[in-house]
Simulated assay, not measured.
Amino acid sequence: MAHKMDRLLFGDNQFFGINHMSEEKARAGAMRFQKTQSIVDVLDIALAEGVRTFMCTTHDRILEIVETMKANPAKYADFIFYPGMPYAHKYANAVTEDGYLGTLKRFLPQEGLLDAAVRGGLSIANKDVEGLITLLVDAEMKMFEGVQAPVIFLQNVVVDLLLGLKFKDAFRIFADHCRKRYNAEPGFITMNLPLLLRALEAQGVENPIVCANMNKIGFRMSGGWAAYAAAIDAYPCRVIAMSIYASGAIPPAEAIAWVAEQPQIESMVFGASGRANIRNTVELVKAADARRAIAA
């Protein structure tokens, strides 16, 4: 049974110093959220406003958030994580600190350590890409043990690299492993949605969850909205729009009104760091969806 995504998803860029239009804002955000509790406080606000899905990287700090929520199961019973992987800096730092063996022990599930080591060895010896991909997924998913993670995303850096290399088998391998080991649906983030959807279709990945930039001005969209809409119509998929504000270039009400007018878009992901912005976004989405329903 397919996972039903919420209309609004909460992103994590603002917590880790990422802003595509302003380095100053990125630095200010990173300083503000140096303590994990300050991130949890914002997630609590989002949850109170009805936004319960957190689309996040596998940054080291996310583990602290997961542990906080596992310690309060009643409060966070409905909270959902959508992990996006890999987070490359994490591995580089871990190898520097702990060495290769220490890194394996830190990230891999204990029950599967031997199995993972065997898979990793085969990957190196036989260029067994399937073993390597599943090994990396297991390493990233270790931190989400005990919480809800019904969708697992492959980050756009890897997705678009694989597209460029024409190594499309990796998408099927990733999708199969997410379903079989984690009972989760695979998700794919990309900067080139038309090319990705064709590749997923060719690999038999049916009705995939895909996330890409989608906004009124075509900011960071390969081919613009017309190409994206044509691809979505041609290849059945479930679509999440990100960068809907074009990193601040479009006013929120205008941006959300445009998204609401696109029936192909099932969900949208946004970032905010305060109650007023979160509540305003929730209200704008509800109002825009209501207008669309009336017009229909």
Rank of each mutant, 00 (worst) to 15 (best):
D44K: 07
D44T: 00
I45E: 13
I45M: 13
I45R: 12
A46P: 05
L47P: 13
A48Q: 05
A48Y: 03
E49S: 04
V51N: 02
V51Y: 02
R52Q: 12
T53K: 04
C56W: 01
C56M: 03
T57A: 04
T57C: 05
T57D: 01
T58K: 03
H59N: 07
H59C: 10
D60N: 11
I62Y: 00
E64G: 07
E64I: 10
I65R: 04
E67S: 09
A71W: 15
A71E: 05
A74L: 13
A74E: 10
K75F: 00
D78K: 00
D78S: 14
F79R: 01
F79N: 03
F81N: 06
P83G: 07
P83N: 11
G84E: 12
P86A: 12
Y87W: 12
Y87G: 10
H89D: 14
H89M: 13
A92H: 02
N93H: 08
A94G: 08
V95N: 09
T96Y: 01
E97K: 05
D98W: 03
G99V: 01
Y100N: 11
L101Y: 10
L101D: 10
L101K: 08
L104K: 03
L104W: 06
L104H: 02
K105W: 06
K105P: 11
R106E: 09
L108I: 10
L108D: 01
P109T: 02
P109D: 01
P109E: 02
P109Q: 01
L114V: 13
D115A: 13
D115E: 10
A116K: 09
A117W: 00
R119A: 15
G120V: 05
G120A: 13
G121V: 12
L122F: 15
S123L: 13
I124M: 15
A125E: 04
A125P: 05
K127G: 13
G131E: 00
G131T: 04
I133T: 08
I133A: 05
T134M: 01
L135W: 01
V137T: 07
V137W: 10
D138G: 04
D138W: 09
M141E: 03
M141A: 06
K142H: 06
M143A: 13
M143V: 00
